[in-house]
Design a protein around this nucleic acid. Structure first.
Lengths: 268, 268
DNA sequence: TGAGAAGTCACCCGATTAATCACAAAAAGG
DNA sequence: CCTTTTTGTGATTAATCGGGTGACTTCTCA
């Protein structure tokens, strides 16, 4: 509906995808025209006319616009489908190149000692999600998962859960709301589900500013990942610990025993 | 094998993927270590020690490294699989956002007249490839395709060809070498294939520097795309014309009649 | 042929980023 | 307990890049 706002957002996204501001503006401008000249484009996008030429040339070299070498020359954008497909191809090629090159560098590993307590921090939605999935897939006995927000129940996560449950791993999944619990039960039928309030969290720091819980993951009672989502920036942050003796892990086991997971008997 | 060279390339690719130089160097450095401190990283990557902290912080926020908040703090990179998956996710999210926003901007289309002869130029490997595939899929009667290099016979292209041939479109595909012709026949069994030398091209400009022919595509005798690959830069460039009366298209039909496609009788 | 439009260049300036330095806080080690 | 080294933060400088503007040549068309 709001064309103007969408244009601004499209320009922003294109810049995140690697285009310069002028290039992004020109591409969005051309997307609204069947074809246009430098002058028209300049008026419509507020890119200086004399710079339209550079910008379009770059876009052309990336396969995003076509140029008609007449006078005045005309430009037009490729279809949205072609554009997105091209962008995907380019990025995929780069990621594959990264896999090849980084995959074949030798690890020097100056044997950094410290086999001790380690608690690692990582942040970023997708990074944490991947780590979550991977940890689940590596489980051999038990997975305890508490999901704090509906949006975190992604397709990949469901796949990982169903894969691991078919290997005989016990799955215990907690949700914050009934509707979320229902969703989980239909998508992961073999899991034991329950509902947890966050009282155990809130009671600790009632005065702090509200940081919502994201995920809580305990693998085989020896690896833990806890994430929170800051309300403002929507950024997700996680901490992550390994090892049965790890302080964080011990804490988590304690927590569980005290009723985070209601009526669940520790097998050992 | 050549770890050093691969590292340099990995750093380059990471920068293309949006990281800054220091960030890229640090990530590659950490990929060679199970874990490391700022000092060690600095020595190994030639990033100023005091800048390592910033770089790593950015990497952490992108989900590419983990940080242990001890003293001295330790950093470690996520696994290559996690890293590439995260990068893919991020990019895919952006492209989808682009589809949504750009898809819902209104087209103003100040009815740029010029219903006349139009010849458009576009360049870039993937862009041209997507255009090729799309044109093929839109064909209703006949597709004539000449492939100049083995690498251009991609999976997507083969899919498009097989899809369109199942709709009753005549497929005529030319190759430069016998081995390429064989490949085509096995991958696209329903196509009529032949071998073309480039005499018709070479005879025209024997003195010019060698620009290799990439593709030649004629759709329903009314749309043409010709691409060339400059030997040095490996960049592909194409021109593209539509309309039965288009000069370029007429030229192409002429060319065909004169024997580019041997013994093929124009149906009309 | 003359006026205006189209296209190319070269330049400026502000923002970002690479690179260095100064300094406080924190281990380490006698 | 004090000294020395290491670690981390912040400010500062230098160089690069990208946005922004204008001069100038070429082309089109009346």
């Amino acid at each position: 509906m709001d064309t103007n706002e969408n244009m601004e957002e499209a320009i922003e996204v294109l810049q995140q995808l690697g285009l310069k501001e002028y290039e992004a503006r020109c591409f969005v401008g051309l997307s609204r025209l069947h074809s246009g000249t430098a002058k028209k484009l300049s008026e419509m996008t507020e890119v200086p006319r004399t710079r339209v030429y550079d910008a379009v040339r770059v876009l052309e070299s990336q396969g995003l616009v076509e140029v008609q070498h007449s006078s005045p020359q005309e430009f037009r954008a490729v279809s949205l489908e072609e554009a997105t497909e091209t962008l995907r191809d380019q990025y995929e090629a780069r990621v594959e190149r990264l896999e090849n090159t980084l995959g074949s560098v030798d690890i020097v590993d100056e044997g950094d000692d410290t086999p001790i307590q380690q608690v690692w921090a990582l942040s970023g939605q997708s990074g944490i999600e991947n780590r979550t999935d991977q940890l689940i897939e590596e489980a051999t006995d038990e997975v305890v998962l508490v999901i704090g927000d509906e949006s975190l129940l992604t397709e990949d996560l469901v796949d990982s859960l169903n894969e691991v449950v078919s290997n005989g791993v016990t799955l215990i999944i907690g949700a914050l709301t009934e509707s979320l619990e229902d969703q989980i039960q239909t998508k992961v039928p073999d899991a034991t589900t329950f509902i947890t309030g966050l009282e155990w969290l809130r009671s600790e720091n009632a005065t702090e500013d509200e940081t919502a819980i994201g995920r809580l993951l305990l693998i085989d009672r020896s690896t833990i990942l806890v994430s929170s989502i800051t309300p403002g920036s929507k950024e997700e942050q996680a901490i992550f610990g390994e090892g049965f003796g790890n302080g964080l892990v011990v804490l988590a086991r304690r927590l569980m025993a005290q009723g985070l997971v209601p009526a669940h008997d520790p097998g050992q």
